[in-house]
């Protein structure tokens, strides 16, 4: 086995998870100006629901489909019924509302699923693909391809298409966007829906490789948040920050030891935050 090849493979898989969760956070942040701390709950809800439904005898496909729908309903419902009526509230308070929603989901999931971790079978079965002294499971390939593919699709859509730019414009200046004929509300609910879908997809693809429990949500939010923050909340940048984080984590784990991962990684995060904010002053508030 080749340690370097395997580190790259592991880094790709881990990076796909970072990106998958990061892009949903970026999307919502850029369209609705909310840091959605309940984002990772879409991952946990999908995982727990799929595991329970499949465990209850539903065919895997149906269980996954239903689980994704539940997660979508949560993501859009959070926006429609909780956040939208309070759109004028300060950003900090809205962040805390999403944190509250995450706490509530955690409380519900522990009642539904107990404390033991759950999982469900992979979608892509078969022996791992081997190359250059490394091995990669089919599900892992799907995770990497879809993780980066879908995220790249979303990133390119936002950065390069007219509709995507309108979505972003909706957040930069909702009033101007309305004047230009952008339906801000539709843009936002779309963002939440896409975010929820991405979180759910991440769950469907990743959980068979690990497991899920009632408190996976916040941990996943944190992962996405790290990637999103390092990218400076950029829909294209998050692809690279996710990939970079994944490779970094794998390389540190392989050559340096996992104990040093967090101190190094988060010092980098602080430096990036400093760099990102070098030109912003006065709390990013509007200029005189």
């Amino acid at each position: 086995m080749n340690l370097f090849t395997q580190s790259v493979i592991s880094g790709l898989m881990t990076g796909a998870v970072y990106t998958f969760l990061g892009i949903g956070l970026v999307l919502v942040y850029r369209t609705a100006r909310i840091l959605n701390l309940a984002h990772g709950e879409t991952f946990a809800i999908t995982g727990v629901a799929a595991a329970l439904l499949a465990g209850a005898g539903l065919p895997l496909g149906a269980a996954l489909g239903l689980a994704i729908l539940i997660s979508l309903a949560f993501a859009t419902g959070l926006h429609r019924f909780v956040l939208r009526p309070r759109a004028e509230w300060p950003a900090g308070t809205l962040i805390l509302i999403t944190l509250g929603a995450a706490f509530v989901v955690r409380g519900v999931l522990i009642l539904l699923a107990g404390t033991d971790p759950l999982s469900f079978p992979v979608m892509f079965e078969g022996p791992p693909v081997r190359f250059a002294g490394g091995a990669m499971p089919l599900q892992g390939i799907a995770l990497v391809v879809l993780g980066f593919g879908v995220s790249a699709g979303v990133g390119i859509f936002l950065a390069a298409t007219r509709a995507g730019k309108q979505l972003l414009a909706a957040a930069e200046n909702p009033y101007a966007a309305e004047l230009l004929g952008v339906n801000v509300e539709r843009a936002r609910i779309t963002a939440y829906a896409i975010g929820g879908l991405l979180g759910a997809l991440a769950g469907v693809l990743l959980i068979p490789l690990i497991a899920v429990d009632f408190q996976s949500g916040l941990a996943m939010t944190l992962r996405g948040f790290i990637a999103a923050a390092i990218s400076g909340m950029s829909p294209v940048g998050v692809l690279f920050s996710g990939l970079g984080l994944g490779l970094f984590e794998a390389m540190v784990g392989a050559y340096l030891g996992a104990l040093y991962q967090d101190p190094v990684m988060f010092c980098v995060l602080i430096l990036v935050a400093l760099w990102q904010s070098r030109n912003i002053r006065f709390g990013g508030s509007r200029r005189a």
């Binding site: 840091l35 948040f225 967090d262 995060l269 400093l274 904010s277």
Partner: peptide
Amino acid sequence: EIFVRLPGIYFAIGTLGFAFVVEGLARA
């Protein structure tokens, strides 16, 4: 000195990162 220059959300990110660093160093 570092954090107060971080506006809004970057302050949140910076302080969050600091907590990770402290927890990580304590483990390491």
